[in-house]
């Protein structure tokens, strides 16, 4: 179930991988030359943020491949082109998906190690997936979601904003659990799963070097940075200006060049 084609400078292959009853959509960018022994897995955000950042993510994959990294983009179960729907989605399922993606990337890239790069919720999943994995060479977090509760609040505020453009006035009940946000179902399982996410509550030491990049300093991200540093994790922090591609209109086709360049540079130095 795969299709493969060679372009000048790189090869791109699209395929399904993972468990046969829950196939995941993957796009593998194979460098043409100077291939490194470390593969990259790009962990995407979810739902509306995933759709809006797609162009930037593809650009990031192309640039990483040009820097010599075999790079895998993929969709979590129940998102994008992967199988499944919202009914069984949750962080545990997606963490398993990141694990499967790491094995796939190493296998396809002939690599012994892997680096994880994640945006928003994808960054949280990348950090969680890296724990206890000696084969993870580095983790790059782009505007990471630190608190699932805070993240849900942001999505609810965004959803309410969108509802104000409707013909009739639809008001979310702020006291109720949302059943849908921004075009996607929020099941009880997913709501509870996201609510339980708190990277500041993760006690385990992380031995992998971590990179954090964000446009503007965020309090929770700063706390995460301090906590990681206090536990002897090697942390590099960088401010890099750029459009918020995960919320911007996809028809603007924005690509945050400075951020992508910063990520490629850091990963290239680490792996």
């Amino acid at each position: 179930m795969s299709s493969h084609v060679q372009f000048p400078g790189e090869a791109v292959e699209v395929f399904y991988f993972g468990a046969p009853d829950q196939p995941l959509y993957g796009v593998f960018h194979q460098p043409a030359a100077n291939v490194r022994s470390c593969a990259i897995v790009l962990c995407p955000p979810i739902e509306q943020e995933y759709i809006r950042c797609h162009r930037a993510y593809r650009q990031l994959a192309v640039r990483l491949a040009r820097a010599g990294f075999p790079t895998l983009r993929f969709d979590y179960y129940g998102t994008g082109d992967s199988s499944g729907d919202e009914a069984v989605m949750g962080l545990d399922v997606w963490l398993d998906n990141v694990g499967a993606a790491m094995e796939e990337a190493k296998s396809r890239g002939g690599a012994s190690r892997v680096a994880l790069v994640g945006l928003r919720l994808g960054a949280a999943l990348a950090l969680m997936a890296a724990r206890g994995r000696p084969d993870v060479a580095a983790v790059a977090l782009w505007e990471p979601v630190v608190s699932g509760r805070e993240y849900l609040n942001e999505l609810m505020a965004w959803h309410q904003e969108k509802l104000r453009y409707f013909l009739s006035n639809i008001v979310m009940d702020s006291g109720q659990k949302p059943t849908e946000l921004l075009g996607f179902a929020i099941t009880d399982r997913m709501f509870e799963s996201l609510t339980s996410l708190n990277l500041l509550g993760e006690g385990q030491k992380l031995s992998n070097p971590v990179y954090i990049v964000e446009a503007e300093p965020d309090t929770l991200v700063n706390q995460l940075r301090q906590q990681l540093a206090n536990r002897s994790t090697e942390v590099t922090y960088q401010n890099a200006d750029g459009p918020r591609v995960w919320t911007d209109d996809p028809d603007k086709a924005l690509v945050p060049n400075q951020v992508l360049e910063a990520i490629v540079n850091w990963v290239s130095g680490m792996c």
Binding site: I51, D81, G183, P250
Partner: peptide
Amino acid sequence: IHHVGPTR
């Protein structure tokens, strides 16, 4: 918007 379409 890529081939998943708006809101998938």
